[in-house]
Amino acid sequence: MTERPVLDRNLNSKTFRDFYYLKEELVDFCRKNGLPTSGGKIEITDRIAYFLDTGKILSAAAAKKKAVVISDIREDTKIEPDFVCSEKHRAFFKEQIGNSFSFNVAFQKWLKGNAGKTYRDAIVAYYQIIEDKKKGNTKIDRQFEYNTYIRDFFADNQGKSLEDAIRCWKYKKQLQGHNRYEQSDLAALED
Protein backbone atom coordinates (compact mmCIF):
# COMPACT_ATOMS: atom_id res chain seq x y z
CA MET A 1 0.00 0.00 0.00
CA THR A 2 1.35 3.42 -0.98
CA GLU A 3 0.72 6.14 1.59
CA ARG A 4 -1.13 9.23 0.49
CA PRO A 5 1.44 11.91 -0.32
CA VAL A 6 1.28 15.42 1.06
CA LEU A 7 -0.33 17.78 -1.42
CA ASP A 8 2.43 20.18 -2.42
CA ARG A 9 4.04 21.66 -5.56
CA ASN A 10 6.44 18.70 -5.91
CA LEU A 11 3.61 16.25 -6.62
CA ASN A 12 2.88 15.27 -10.23
CA SER A 13 -0.72 15.41 -11.45
CA LYS A 14 -1.03 11.64 -12.01
CA THR A 15 -0.09 10.85 -8.40
CA PHE A 16 -2.28 13.73 -7.20
CA ARG A 17 -5.32 12.32 -9.04
CA ASP A 18 -4.64 8.81 -7.72
CA PHE A 19 -5.40 9.89 -4.15
CA TYR A 20 -8.38 11.39 -2.37
CA TYR A 21 -8.10 14.90 -0.92
CA LEU A 22 -10.81 16.81 0.91
CA LYS A 23 -12.06 19.97 -0.77
CA GLU A 24 -10.67 21.94 2.18
CA GLU A 25 -7.20 20.54 1.43
CA LEU A 26 -7.56 21.50 -2.23
CA VAL A 27 -8.67 25.04 -1.38
CA ASP A 28 -5.78 25.40 1.09
CA PHE A 29 -3.30 24.33 -1.63
CA CYS A 30 -4.85 26.86 -4.02
CA ARG A 31 -4.56 29.68 -1.49
CA LYS A 32 -0.92 28.86 -0.74
CA ASN A 33 -0.07 28.79 -4.45
CA GLY A 34 -2.14 31.72 -5.73
CA LEU A 35 -4.72 29.63 -7.58
CA PRO A 36 -8.42 30.58 -7.71
CA THR A 37 -10.45 28.76 -5.05
CA SER A 38 -13.87 29.11 -6.64
CA GLY A 39 -15.86 26.28 -8.15
CA GLY A 40 -16.69 22.74 -7.22
CA LYS A 41 -14.28 20.02 -6.17
CA ILE A 42 -13.87 18.66 -9.71
CA GLU A 43 -13.07 22.11 -11.14
CA ILE A 44 -10.55 22.81 -8.36
CA THR A 45 -8.95 19.36 -8.84
CA ASP A 46 -8.54 20.02 -12.57
CA ARG A 47 -7.03 23.44 -11.83
CA ILE A 48 -4.49 21.93 -9.40
CA ALA A 49 -3.57 19.12 -11.82
CA TYR A 50 -2.95 21.69 -14.57
CA PHE A 51 -0.79 23.72 -12.18
CA LEU A 52 1.21 20.65 -11.13
CA ASP A 53 1.82 19.75 -14.80
CA THR A 54 2.61 23.20 -16.16
CA GLY A 55 3.38 25.51 -13.25
CA LYS A 56 0.77 27.86 -14.75
CA ILE A 57 -2.38 29.13 -13.12
CA LEU A 58 -5.61 28.21 -14.87
CA SER A 59 -8.20 30.92 -14.29
CA ALA A 60 -11.59 30.12 -12.83
CA ALA A 61 -14.44 29.60 -15.28
CA ALA A 62 -16.03 32.80 -16.44
CA ALA A 63 -19.00 33.88 -14.37
CA LYS A 64 -22.35 32.84 -15.75
CA LYS A 65 -24.73 35.37 -17.23
CA LYS A 66 -27.22 36.98 -14.92
CA ALA A 67 -30.38 34.92 -14.69
CA VAL A 68 -33.43 36.04 -16.61
CA VAL A 69 -35.93 37.62 -14.26
CA ILE A 70 -39.47 36.38 -14.73
CA SER A 71 -42.31 38.23 -13.14
CA ASP A 72 -44.82 35.43 -12.68
CA ILE A 73 -44.37 31.66 -12.78
CA ARG A 74 -47.26 29.52 -14.02
CA GLU A 75 -47.36 25.92 -15.17
CA ASP A 76 -47.21 27.00 -18.82
CA THR A 77 -44.27 29.39 -18.25
CA LYS A 78 -41.13 28.24 -20.03
CA ILE A 79 -38.04 27.44 -17.95
CA GLU A 80 -35.57 30.25 -18.52
CA PRO A 81 -32.01 29.75 -19.85
CA ASP A 82 -29.34 29.96 -17.13
CA PHE A 83 -31.92 28.84 -14.54
CA VAL A 84 -31.08 29.86 -10.96
CA CYS A 85 -33.02 28.53 -7.97
CA SER A 86 -34.71 31.45 -6.25
CA GLU A 87 -37.25 32.01 -3.50
CA LYS A 88 -39.82 32.78 -6.21
CA HIS A 89 -39.17 29.35 -7.76
CA ARG A 90 -39.25 27.65 -4.37
CA ALA A 91 -42.61 29.30 -3.56
CA PHE A 92 -44.06 28.19 -6.91
CA PHE A 93 -42.96 24.57 -6.46
CA LYS A 94 -44.13 24.43 -2.82
CA GLU A 95 -47.52 25.73 -3.94
CA GLN A 96 -47.73 23.09 -6.70
CA ILE A 97 -46.04 20.12 -4.98
CA GLY A 98 -46.48 20.83 -1.29
CA ASN A 99 -44.24 21.59 1.68
CA SER A 100 -42.21 18.43 1.10
CA PHE A 101 -40.66 20.09 -1.99
CA SER A 102 -36.92 20.73 -1.97
CA PHE A 103 -34.41 21.65 -4.66
CA ASN A 104 -32.54 18.33 -4.65
CA VAL A 105 -29.44 18.05 -6.85
CA ALA A 106 -31.08 15.88 -9.51
CA PHE A 107 -33.99 18.30 -9.90
CA GLN A 108 -31.70 21.33 -10.07
CA LYS A 109 -29.75 19.60 -12.85
CA TRP A 110 -32.97 18.81 -14.67
CA LEU A 111 -34.11 22.44 -14.49
CA LYS A 112 -30.73 23.76 -15.68
CA GLY A 113 -30.65 21.28 -18.56
CA ASN A 114 -34.21 21.77 -19.81
CA ALA A 115 -34.56 25.46 -20.63
CA GLY A 116 -37.56 26.00 -22.90
CA LYS A 117 -39.67 23.25 -21.38
CA THR A 118 -42.55 24.32 -19.17
CA TYR A 119 -42.82 24.38 -15.41
CA ARG A 120 -45.58 21.76 -15.85
CA ASP A 121 -42.88 19.51 -17.35
CA ALA A 122 -40.68 20.34 -14.37
CA ILE A 123 -43.36 19.21 -11.91
CA VAL A 124 -43.71 15.89 -13.74
CA ALA A 125 -39.91 15.50 -13.76
CA TYR A 126 -39.73 16.26 -10.01
CA TYR A 127 -42.18 13.45 -9.20
CA GLN A 128 -40.23 11.07 -11.45
CA ILE A 129 -36.95 11.99 -9.74
CA ILE A 130 -38.50 11.38 -6.31
CA GLU A 131 -39.90 8.01 -7.49
CA ASP A 132 -36.50 6.99 -8.92
CA LYS A 133 -34.83 7.96 -5.67
CA LYS A 134 -37.25 5.77 -3.67
CA LYS A 135 -36.43 2.83 -5.96
CA GLY A 136 -32.69 3.46 -5.60
CA ASN A 137 -32.35 4.32 -9.29
CA THR A 138 -30.40 7.51 -8.73
CA LYS A 139 -26.78 8.13 -9.61
CA ILE A 140 -24.59 10.03 -7.16
CA ASP A 141 -22.30 12.51 -8.93
CA ARG A 142 -18.55 11.97 -8.96
CA GLN A 143 -17.79 14.80 -6.53
CA PHE A 144 -19.84 13.00 -3.87
CA GLU A 145 -17.51 10.00 -3.59
CA TYR A 146 -18.11 9.67 0.15
CA ASN A 147 -21.89 9.39 -0.31
CA THR A 148 -21.47 6.78 -3.05
CA TYR A 149 -19.02 4.79 -0.92
CA ILE A 150 -21.30 4.78 2.14
CA ARG A 151 -24.35 3.76 0.05
CA ASP A 152 -22.41 0.90 -1.59
CA PHE A 153 -20.93 -0.19 1.76
CA PHE A 154 -24.40 -0.60 3.28
CA ALA A 155 -25.74 -2.36 0.17
CA ASP A 156 -23.04 -5.01 0.69
CA ASN A 157 -22.93 -5.04 4.51
CA GLN A 158 -26.39 -4.95 6.04
CA GLY A 159 -26.17 -4.89 9.79
CA LYS A 160 -22.89 -2.96 9.92
CA SER A 161 -22.83 0.47 11.54
CA LEU A 162 -22.16 3.90 10.07
CA GLU A 163 -19.02 3.94 12.24
CA ASP A 164 -17.84 0.78 10.41
CA ALA A 165 -18.57 2.39 7.05
CA ILE A 166 -16.66 5.52 7.98
CA ARG A 167 -13.65 3.50 9.20
CA CYS A 168 -13.56 1.68 5.87
CA TRP A 169 -13.94 4.98 3.97
CA LYS A 170 -11.03 6.54 5.86
CA TYR A 171 -8.94 3.46 5.08
CA LYS A 172 -9.94 3.52 1.40
CA LYS A 173 -9.21 7.19 0.78
CA GLN A 174 -5.64 6.69 1.98
CA LEU A 175 -5.05 4.10 -0.74
CA GLN A 176 -3.84 4.90 -4.21
CA GLY A 177 -6.46 4.47 -6.93
CA HIS A 178 -10.23 4.77 -7.05
CA ASN A 179 -12.40 5.44 -4.01
CA ARG A 180 -15.25 3.02 -4.76
CA TYR A 181 -16.25 0.48 -2.13
CA GLU A 182 -14.75 -3.01 -2.40
CA GLN A 183 -15.10 -5.93 0.02
CA SER A 184 -11.33 -5.83 0.61
CA ASP A 185 -11.91 -2.49 2.41
CA LEU A 186 -13.33 -4.48 5.32
CA ALA A 187 -9.68 -5.04 6.30
CA ALA A 188 -10.02 -1.70 8.10
CA LEU A 189 -12.36 -3.36 10.60
CA GLU A 190 -9.87 -6.06 11.55
CA ASP A 191 -7.69 -3.68 13.61
Rank of each mutant, 00 (worst) to 15 (best):
V68P: 13
V68L: 08
V69P: 07
I70D: 00
S71N: 15
I73P: 07
I73H: 09
E75Y: 10
D76C: 13
T77R: 03
I79M: 04
E80Y: 05
E80L: 08
P81S: 01
D82R: 09
S86P: 04
E87I: 04
E87H: 05
H89F: 07
H89T: 13
H89W: 03
R90W: 07
R90P: 04
F92N: 03
F92W: 03
E95V: 02
E95I: 10
Q96A: 12
I97W: 05
G98H: 00
F101N: 07
F101C: 07
F101T: 02
S102W: 09
S102L: 06
F103S: 08
A106L: 02
F107W: 01
K109Q: 15
W110K: 10
L111M: 14
L111A: 08
G113Q: 13
N114P: 00
A115V: 04
G116D: 05
K117P: 01
Y119H: 12
A122L: 01
A125I: 01
Y127D: 07
Q128I: 07
I129G: 05
I130K: 10
D132T: 11
D132C: 01
K133Q: 13
K133G: 05
K134M: 01
T138H: 12
R142V: 15
N147S: 13
Y149H: 05
I150T: 05
D152F: 02
D152M: 09
F154P: 08
F154M: 12
D156C: 15
